[in-house]
Nucleic acid binder design. Structure first.
Lengths: 234, 234
DNA sequence: ACCTGAACACCGTTCAAGT
DNA sequence: ACCTGAACACCGTTCAAGT
């Protein structure tokens, strides 16, 4: 720590190098360990150098999220049915986020104002327009799909706070075993399917225990529901 | 500031009073202003008092989220069709979260491990079982619905970082105006419907500009998609 | 232009001490 | 049991100064 600073040449860093270091720190040390000083340490410099290149913590986080999203390889827009195309984009989004799970807590706020390249937005809008959405309903359909995918994956990846003292998981499971079947009949009848697998009864984040089956079902739900909206039978 | 401490009687606080003060600070000052010291100041005490009653920042946040979710009034389970019942619960969840928008950033991580009362979980599971979901598919359907609702509202409420310098919104809109219609045809054709209204092109959080139409459409999408899953036609 | 070294203000948390 | 007062370690950010 603190060794190795003051190297021979000076201008070793560009913004990309700093962003790479930031992502490495976030991947390795998690959100609590993601610190301007830790990023500087990993580069062998002082915090002010990080500030000079990327300009502050929240801007560094934005750049990191942009970098992660740039790892997405969207499918070609022409070949697939719009339903399959949307399925592939959603799977690809989840794939890159699972590769960097600690990004999940920031991606939503970064994505409100898209600093990223508009190619992906154009692709999704184009495919939804092909499905039949026009004007304000096109905007709503976009928000429905993107909000569902981004939000769902964030919920999946969110982990319980690390404060939890060891052993309370057993106590919590015991308290679930004591639930009265009269008051909670469905919960009691499905306890084995539900404990540890369902939002609200998980002791680990989605990076350790991914919800694969639920995500595939969610894809079917979102696409089927959008299909109904695209061709209203009312 | 700092005035009014050292009052006459000592045991004025309980955990509920501290949690109320924490929620008030979070509502008024936002996430950056939510500080153990600020909570203590609002109570007229020292930080150590807050620690003594609630035991740390993350536990205080968990208690605040629990308190907000306790404001939900779920519909009676018997009267409604399962589709309408789920619609009402989702609307009620969004309502209480919009009443405390700054909670949105924490609710996902708090909800992974449900410290809250299991009544709501029982109600949703019961209604999904009535719709025809059994065993592991019941767990998946639960994760699909809860993850979509919770995640979508979190995305809606997430605000861009406050770092953004004033005036860049105009610059960003200008850059959108310069998008080549050949490269971004759908984006260019729907610019008026999309700019400021769509995830990725918003300059404010969902508490100031709620996405009401998109949420209602999302409800229809989720429920219709779940209906298909409940009665597979394969 | 880019980096050093150090400082400032602030925050989460803890602890000995009081009552 | 509950609160005071102060301290510790740490972090984001800035700034004068170097090259």
């Amino acid at each position: 720590v603190g060794e190795g600073k003051r190297l021979v040449d000076r201008q070793r860093f560009g913004p990309e190098v700093v962003v790479d270091a930031g992502l490495a720190v976030l991947d390795a040390a998690g959100v609590p360990g993601f610190t301007m000083r830790a990023v500087a340490d990993r580069l062998g410099t002082y915090p002010a150098t990080v500030y000079w290149h990327v300009g502050g913590r929240s801007q560094l986080l934005t750049a990191i999220v942009d970098r992660v999203l740039a790892e997405m390889v969207p499918p070609g827009p022409q070949v697939l049915d719009w339903r399959d195309w949307l399925r592939e984009v959603a799977r690809e989004y989840r794939r890159v986020l699972h590769a960097h799970p600690n990004t999940g807590q920031f991606v939503a706020s970064v994505l409100t104002t898209g600093v990223t390249a508009p190619e992906l937005m154009e692709g999704i809008l184009n495919v939804l327009a092909r499905a039949g959405f026009r004007g304000p309903r096109l905007a709503s359909a976009y928000n429905v799909l993107v909000g569902s995918v981004v939000g769902w994956v964030s919920v999946e990846l969110s982990a319980p706070p690390s404060d939890v003292e060891p052993g309370w998981q057993e106590g919590f499971e015991a308290s679930l075993r004591d639930l009265s079947p009269e008051q909670f009949p469905t919960l009691a009848a499905n306890r084995d399917h539900v404990v540890g697998n369902v939002i609200g009864l998980r002791w680990t984040g989605g990076s350790q225990v991914p919800l694969d089956a639920a995500f595939e079902m969610a894809l079917d739900v979102w696409i089927a529901g959008l299909s109904v909206q695209a061709e209203p039978q009312g």
